[in-house]
């Protein structure tokens, strides 16, 4: 069963519509909100992981787009400023999913597929080198 993460951008007038309800009820999808920033009257953002059968999946995404929501694959949300990072490795200590690990050379390896955008690394980084772009 496909599982994908999407970055949803809501127009200001759409920010209060219960889209996750519709995804579950109308499309038999399992949405998992990893991160959301939604304020009435303002542009909203949501990081949504969706699991479900392929056919419902496409229909669910089409529904979201028809509702005026911009749906894009969530891939570049987290950024590491390599000029600022000193490769201390402290972010790896708080990364529960194991998306951030140090290799034998002392370099930092980031596996985006494992990242759940929990922000623990953003808070832990003593150089403030990790940022979420949304």
């Amino acid at each position: 069963m496909p599982r994908k993460r999407f970055d949803l951008a809501f127009p200001p007038n759409q920010a209060t519509k219960p889209i996750t309800y519709h995804l579950v009820k109308d499309f038999d999808l399992t949405p998992n909100i990893l991160r959301a920033q939604i304020q009435p009257g303002q542009e909203g953002r949501m990081l949504l992981e969706i699991t479900g059968p392929k056919e419902s999946f496409d229909a669910g995404i089409a529904f979201l787009e028809a509702e005026g929501i911009t749906v894009s694959p969530a891939a570049t949300d987290i950024r590491l400023d390599e000029d600022v990072c000193v490769l201390c490795g402290l972010c790896t200590a708080v990364c529960r999913p194991g998306a951030l690990v140090m290799d034998a050379a002392g370099d930092l390896i980031f596996d985006k597929d494992k990242c759940v955008y929990c922000e623990a690394c953003v808070i832990a980084c003593p150089r403030r080198a990790v940022t979420l772009s949304f």
Binding site: V86, L87, C88, L90, C91, A93, M102
Partner: peptide, 8 residues
Amino acid sequence: GPISSLKQ
């Protein structure tokens, strides 16, 4: 997780 940078 380390705090002291091995690379540095």
